[in-house]
Computed example of a mutant assay.
Amino acid sequence: MHRILIVCFFMLSVSTYGQRVANFAYKNFNAKDFETYAFWVNANQVGDINYSYKTPEGDIKSMKLEYQGTDLLNGEKAFKVLFPNKLMLYVVPRKNNTLRIASLDGKYAKTFHWLYEGPVAGRGTFCNACAENAADAANLLKLYYLK
């Protein structure tokens, strides 16, 4: 019983006071048009938003985006992210734990799936801050980014 309480308290304190990240990807890493978004939550507040994409040469480029608050996109609750080049995209968490990320004019519109960050077949490093599954990742966004 004491172990259960200690584990529950630890999990609550990590998720309440620590850093969490929800990672979402468009396609898999081997795809030529691979993209990812990492939405951070720090001490129950919206944190950094990192965007990464694969160049035509196969290199990965990254940049920080700015959180621009909530809005509606085609009647769905969304939050906005601003790129350094002033491109504004709308992020819509969906019921199936995916993200629809789109521009207002519809020129950019893609569906992103939760991206597992951790060991595969015993290789790699465990990510303590990462959402444990797609539902956890989507809930992080709904709780903190859609406030």
Score class of each variant (00 low, 15 high):
V46S: 12
M1K: 08
N85Q: 14
K147W: 00
G58A: 09
E117K: 11
G124E: 05
A109T: 09
E66Q: 13
F10Y: 07
C8F: 10
E57F: 10
W40N: 03
G18W: 07
P93A: 08
A109R: 12
N133S: 03
N97Y: 10
Y116I: 01
P56G: 09
P119N: 06
A135D: 14
E132L: 05
Y116S: 08
R123D: 15
T36P: 01
V92E: 06
Y108V: 08
Q45M: 07
V7R: 11
E132I: 09
V14K: 13
F79N: 05
F79G: 00
E35N: 08
K27I: 00
L12I: 06
F34N: 05
S52P: 00
K110D: 05
G18I: 03
Y90T: 04
C127A: 04
E57T: 12
L140C: 02
E76G: 04
P119G: 06
I6L: 15
G18K: 05
F126N: 09
L73P: 00
W114F: 15
G124T: 14
V21F: 02
A43R: 12
N96I: 02
R20Y: 03
V91R: 02
Y26I: 02
A22I: 02
A38P: 05
L73V: 03
V92S: 08
Y26V: 05
V21M: 02
E57R: 13
L143T: 13
F29T: 02
L141F: 06
N96M: 04
V7Y: 08
L5H: 11
S103Y: 10
C127W: 03
G75A: 10
N133D: 15
Y116E: 08
Y145W: 13
D48C: 04
T36N: 07
K54M: 10
T16Y: 07
